[in-house]
Amino acid sequence: MRITGHPVLPDLPADEVGFTFNGEPYTAREGEPVAATLLANGVRQLRVSPVAVEPRGIYCGIGHCYECRVWLNNDTQVRACLTPATEGDSFASERTEE
C-alpha cells in the first residue's frame, strides 16, 4: 500500500526502524506513525473494542478520536496514528499480564 513514484511529491526515505505489532516484525520509515506502517503492510485492525468486541482501526488520522489506541511496550496506551516507532518497540492490541 506504499505510494511510490508520486507524480508531484518527492519519494520519502526507505524503511529503517524495526518494531513489532502483536508479535509480528515490521519496518517503519523514520518518524512515520505506527498506524501508517501497519496499513502500508495491509494491517488495518489495530485493536478490538472492549465491550462489543468489534474491530477498530484508523478513523480520524489526526489523534482526535482515539480509535487507533494500542499498547506500547506493554506499558502505556498510545495513539497509533500519531506515534512513530523507535527501534525495538513492541506494540500490541492488548496488554498482556506479566
Partner: peptide, 26 residues
C-alpha cells in the same frame, strides 16, 4: 459500519496519502 477498519474520515485519507504516503485503500 463506520467503525470498521477501512472506514475513515476524508482527513485521515489526506494525511495517509499526502504525508505518510500510504494508500487508504486500493
Amino acid at each position: 459500519g463506520w467503525t470498521l477498519p477501512g472506514a475513515m474520515t476524508i482527513g485521515a485519507a489526506q494525511v495517509l496519502t499526502n504525508i505518510h504516503r500510504v494508500k487508504p485503500g486500493h
